[in-house]
Design a protein around this nucleic acid. Sequence first.
DNA 1: CGTATACGTCTACACTGTAGACCCATGAGT
DNA 2: ACTCATGGGTCTACAGTGTAGACGTATACG
Lengths: 210, 210
Amino acid sequence: MSGRREEILDAAVAIADEHGVDAVSMRALADRVGVTPMALYRHVKDKAALLDGMVGRLLTALLPTDPAEERTWDERLRALAHAARRVTQRHPWAAHLLFSRPAVTPDGLRAVDIIYTALIEAGVPEPQVPRLERLISTFVIGFAASEASGRFAPGAGDPRGRRGHLDDGELPGHEALGPWLGLPLDLTTEFEADLADITRLVEAVARREG
Amino acid sequence: MSGRREEILDAAVAIADEHGVDAVSMRALADRVGVTPMALYRHVKDKAALLDGMVGRLLTALLPTDPAEERTWDERLRALAHAARRVTQRHPWAAHLLFSRPAVTPDGLRAVDIIYTALIEAGVPEPQVPRLERLISTFVIGFAASEASGRFAPGAGDPRGRRGHLDDGELPGHEALGPWLGLPLDLTTEFEADLADITRLVEAVARREG
DNA sequence: CGTATACGTCTACACTGTAGACCCATGAGT
DNA sequence: ACTCATGGGTCTACAGTGTAGACGTATACG
């Protein structure tokens, strides 16, 4: 009940934001809270549980603050997706933790539920809804994690420099796309385009047997 | 040049497979190789570089062994996706490392190239190809990582038991889907269905302006 | 012969998570 | 008024981590 646990989790999040998640050690966290390392174990079972708790705190921030019921299903979906991306931009370390820990926290379930209701409203046949929820959340979290950890970083996709010792004939695709690779990429508009495509995917599934 | 490095990386992979990736310590690895911990640093810059090298080894296994040129673009895509999933099933620890390290290794580029050529063959307008490649690889790796780390695990999606202290009214989506949640899920056929949907997505993009 | 080069060893340091025993304030019950 | 449980905090100690730095040695090549 005591807000002490939340205090601790927030301190841990702050450390991770400032110095990276690796800087979150029990000792450093204890220092920050003004307490002995072992005292933390009264509020947190484990270091693993600590990390779980940290993402839990962020999940809360992900949910729409105002019910905002007015909008259409695809706008609600997009809003949630953008919120998720915003969180992982502010807290890059959190991105790949979202994969490890199933979203069984209340807030996690609430997020899943938003997707469920959106898909139902879109006319997706009910048996397909859970699958599409997983497809969407997987992509969104995956995109966020990729962005946060540099998988999309400049120099990853193409750069002529990178593919040093491969015969050009070995990478026909890269060769064909020469002009388009290496452009600076705007991940925000790319994310938008991806979401639009996925929205169309949902509509297609709904049409197939709605 | 020396195959020593590969020997070491393979030993590390073996340890990770047997006892989890956390069991891959420089000391444990050194023991396994029959050498002193510090000797490893002649072949590997860092622990981080060690992990990179490990996923590099797996990437090699991902690529199609025989050129297998006969097939259509979507079959080649599906084959690659399944190969990726197979790898992360055999080596669950590797899944989320794939997100951290950009695929700049030669084998990584080769995999990207397979997707590029498939998309071009599908008729996707060239400027859109890199984006769709990222969309697809993000989803595939995301699916693999989710599966490997239990995000899809039974008990994650619904279970009545889990959503203990939430008013049922708070999760209308879950309530509406009651019957369909909690079914045992067959991730292989789900993955197939997802890939089919994504194939259709690609076709739609190709149609839009092909 | 001499000298690189590749490979390996030993020692040492700062740091990690956490088990176990102990302490102290508060408040409830009898 | 006395006991007792409970929640929070402290100290010590241990086994394990990655890795910097100095030192050794055996093979291959000029």
